[in-house]
Computed example of a mutant assay.
Amino acid sequence: MTFELKKGGLRATAQTKGGELVSLRDSGGLEYIWEGDPAFWPGQNPVLFPIVGSLKDGRVDINGTAYEMGRHGFARRSEFSLVEQGEDFVTLELRESEETLARYPFPFSLQVTHRLLDDGFSTTFTVKNTGTAHMPFCIGGHTAIRCPLHSGERFEDYELLFEEPEHAYSHLLSPEGLILHDGWRPMLNEGETIPLDYRPFQEMDTIIFSMLRSGKVSLVHRKTGRGVCLDFHEFPMVAFWTTPGAPYLCLEPWQGCAAYDNESGKFEDKPFCVILPPDREKSLTYAFRIE
Results as ranks from 00 to 15, higher is better:
residue 130 T to G: 06
residue 121 F to I: 10
residue 75 A to W: 05
residue 73 G to Y: 10
residue 94 L to C: 07
residue 104 Y to N: 10
residue 113 T to E: 08
residue 92 L to R: 15
residue 66 A to N: 07
residue 110 L to T: 08
residue 123 T to W: 06
residue 63 N to A: 04
residue 106 F to G: 01
residue 140 G to D: 13
residue 102 A to F: 09
residue 93 E to P: 05
residue 52 V to L: 10
residue 101 L to N: 02
residue 63 N to T: 01
residue 100 T to K: 00
residue 149 L to E: 04
residue 111 Q to P: 04
residue 110 L to E: 11
residue 83 V to K: 05
residue 70 G to R: 06
residue 64 G to E: 03
residue 94 L to V: 11
residue 130 T to E: 09
residue 133 A to I: 00
residue 101 L to I: 03
residue 87 E to M: 04
residue 118 D to Q: 15
residue 53 G to L: 13
residue 136 P to H: 10
residue 122 S to N: 03
residue 108 F to L: 09
residue 62 I to M: 00
residue 115 R to L: 13
residue 148 P to R: 12
residue 97 S to R: 06
residue 89 F to W: 08
residue 151 S to Q: 13
residue 57 D to Q: 14
residue 60 V to D: 06
residue 148 P to C: 10
residue 122 S to Q: 06
residue 72 H to Y: 12
residue 51 I to H: 11
residue 133 A to N: 00
residue 134 H to T: 13
residue 148 P to V: 11
residue 100 T to Q: 02
residue 129 N to A: 04
residue 127 V to E: 03
residue 100 T to M: 02
residue 83 V to G: 07
residue 123 T to E: 14
residue 68 E to Q: 12
residue 130 T to L: 14
residue 60 V to Y: 11
residue 68 E to Y: 04
residue 67 Y to E: 02
residue 96 E to P: 05
residue 127 V to N: 06
residue 66 A to Q: 13
residue 144 A to W: 03
residue 62 I to F: 00
residue 120 G to S: 15
residue 107 P to Q: 14
residue 110 L to Y: 11
residue 66 A to R: 14
residue 137 F to I: 08
residue 52 V to A: 14
residue 136 P to N: 14
residue 145 I to D: 00
residue 121 F to V: 12
residue 81 S to H: 09
residue 98 E to W: 01
residue 115 R to M: 12
residue 58 G to K: 10
residue 120 G to N: 13
residue 97 S to Q: 08
residue 90 V to M: 07
residue 135 M to N: 07
residue 80 F to M: 10
residue 138 C to G: 09
residue 105 P to K: 01
residue 129 N to Y: 00
residue 139 I to R: 15
residue 143 T to I: 12
residue 100 T to I: 02
residue 127 V to W: 03
residue 119 D to E: 15
residue 114 H to G: 14
residue 87 E to L: 04
residue 82 L to E: 09
residue 151 S to T: 09
residue 87 E to Q: 06
residue 108 F to H: 13
residue 102 A to I: 05
residue 98 E to N: 04
residue 106 F to Y: 07
residue 116 L to V: 13
residue 115 R to W: 05
residue 59 R to P: 00
